[in-house]
């Protein structure tokens, strides 16, 4: 399982820390690493709750936008938007999502990757904001699976 409490390392061209708004805005090929998960995007916003308990801020959510790719051991997903909710430990991907797991690939409108179980659920409902999202055969999920060859 993925440890959402592990330190998160961000790197980007620009970072703006807004303490009063309790958020940090990153832009310019943002790369985020936490434990064995890497998340790249063009822009990202980190939301954290106010209380600093024991010196460590309570990160609540990362919103990534613009060519997002999530790479985890055995899983690789790309989409237009991603929301990583640290509390529920789920990464939600939106906007022509492409999920590769092992040698299988899935395309759809939206995907949820549960970091605890590693389970990725995909559904075809297209993202409703119109601009820039291509409809995947009106909201269907397509995928190609390759069954391992049975040696005789």
């Amino acid at each position: 399982a993925h440890d959402s409490g592990a330190p998160i390392d961000f790197s980007a061209a620009h970072i703006e820390l807004q303490d009063k708004a309790k958020q940090a805005i990153l832009s310019g090929d943002v790369v985020v690493k936490q434990a064995n998960m890497t998340l790249d995007a063009a822009r990202m916003t980190v939301h954290y709750t106010g209380q600093i308990i024991g010196g460590s801020p309570q990160i609540s959510r990362l919103d990534a936008a613009g060519g997002v790719t999530v790479v985890r051991p055995g899983q690789r997903a790309s989409a237009q938007y991603a929301v990583y909710d640290l509390n529920s430990r789920v990464v939600t991907l939106l906007g022509n999502v492409r999920l590769q797991q092992g040698s299988n690939t899935l395309n759809g409108g939206r995907a949820h990757i549960n970091l605890d179980s590693g389970l990725a659920t995909m559904d075809g409902s297209a993202v409703g904001n119109g601009s820039g999202t291509t409809r995947q055969q009106n909201g269907r999920v397509t995928g190609t699976f390759s069954a391992p060859k049975r040696n005789p």
Partner: peptide, 30 residues
């Protein structure tokens, strides 16, 4: 970062040029 500007009044820090940030979130985030 390569360059930093901080506005002390409204507590904002702007980092430019290969900016790095390391956050250690709460241990058990459940």
């Amino acid at each position: 970062a390569d360059h930093m500007q901080a506005n002390l009044a409204d507590h904002t820090v702007t980092l430019n040029g290969n900016a790095r940030l390391r956050i250690v979130p709460k241990r058990a985030n459940r």
